[in-house]
Design a binder for these strands. Structure first.
Length: 304
DNA sequence: TTTCCATGAGAAT
DNA sequence: TTCTCCTGGAAAT
């Protein structure tokens, strides 16, 4: 469920909390026992994020040439949960939007008041695929759709098949525009294609289309390049805000009628559009629900 | 207690 | 296009 902003936020969190530290790597659940054995006792020497993929680099020391990369994709349900002593300042949990946990990211975790030296790692909660244990804290991973140890070459191959990421400094808007314009597929479908644009998920998809007034079924090749460039710039801002806050908020303040009006159309079927009052509608596109305002986002003429 | 559903994506048909 | 996998909270029974 987490979209790209959560992954970049995680990347930052791992850097801040664990960079350079030697980690005890285990798989309490057992399903990652072999991979954990490879990483156990190494140091976290690098972190990276591209789209919804998180990469944690492990090596003997910071200068070691051979880095083992842990690639994690949270899929629909994965999440990381942190715990630690007073020196281990981390969001309580990041990942899947458990209503209480990830979305609000309650500032301080329960153990953060524990003085350094008195903290002990809690028992793993649920099916923990990987536990990264350091002196002052722990990170537990549950429910990932991908969790594997790969080489630098294999990591490069992952980057190669992913499209530009609005949150990365190497994100290339021209590549995004070309990727959409090249295809005779609905633009709403292309926004979910990680080879076209990496990191966008169902919420950012629906909201970006709304904010740019584009009907989800409009064909990519028929969306003017200027509109796509504007959408990219919009996503850069929206997603950066998501990284900073840990929440997806796409509504402008003047459009919020209630405190929790975070989105314009996502999961608002049947409710009035915050700008025009029309009822928001939904349909299924490539197996995922897609939402839009039938007035703000006009269905294009046939075959466009 | 069971079923449903979710901010995903790869494989199978 | 449909199936499948991973988890856990909410909704339905």
């Amino acid at each position: 469920m987490p979209e790209g902003h959560s992954i970049h936020r995680l990347s930052l969190a791992f850097t801040e909390l664990l960079h350079g530290q030697r980690l005890e790597v285990t798989s309490p659940q057992g399903r990652f026992a072999a991979g954990a054995a490879v990483l156990d006792g190494l140091r976290l020497v690098d972190t990276d994020a591209h789209g919804k993929h998180l990469f944690l680099g492990f090596a003997r020391d910071l200068a070691a040439p051979d880095v083992h990369w842990l690639r994690v994709h949270l899929g629909l349900y994965g999440s990381w949960t942190f715990d630690g002593d007073a020196t281990f300042q981390a969001p309580h949990a990041i990942g899947a939007p458990r209503r209480r946990v990830a979305e609000e990211e309650t500032a301080v975790n329960g153990a953060s008041a524990v003085p350094a030296g008195e903290w002990q790692a809690p028992e793993p909660r649920g099916a923990v695929r990987v536990r990264l244990l350091a002196e002052h804290g722990v990170a537990d991973l549950t429910g990932p759709s991908a969790c594997e140890v790969i080489t630098a070459e294999e990591k490069a191959a992952v980057h190669a098949r992913l499209g530009p990421d609005p949150l990365r400094t190497d994100g290339d808007v021209a590549q995004f525009v070309a990727g959409v314009r090249r295809r005779a597929r609905p633009v709403g479908e292309l926004l979910m294609d990680q080879s076209v644009i990496a990191g966008v998920g169902n919420i950012y998809r629906a909201e970006a289309l709304y904010r740019e007034r584009i009907h989800p079924w409009r064909l990519g090749k028929n969306v003017p390049p200027a509109r796509l460039r504007a959408m990219w710039a919009d996503l850069e801002e929206l997603m950066a805000d998501g990284v900073a806050t840990g929440r997806i908020v796409t509504t402008e303040e003047e459009d919020r009628q209630e405190e929790d009006d975070r989105w314009y159309v996502y999961h608002r079927t049947g409710r009035p559009c915050l700008r025009c009052g029309s009822r928001v509608v939904e349909d299924v596109m490539a197996g995922r629900r897609v939402f839009w305002c039938p007035r703000e986002q006009r269905r294009p003429p046939a075959a466009s």
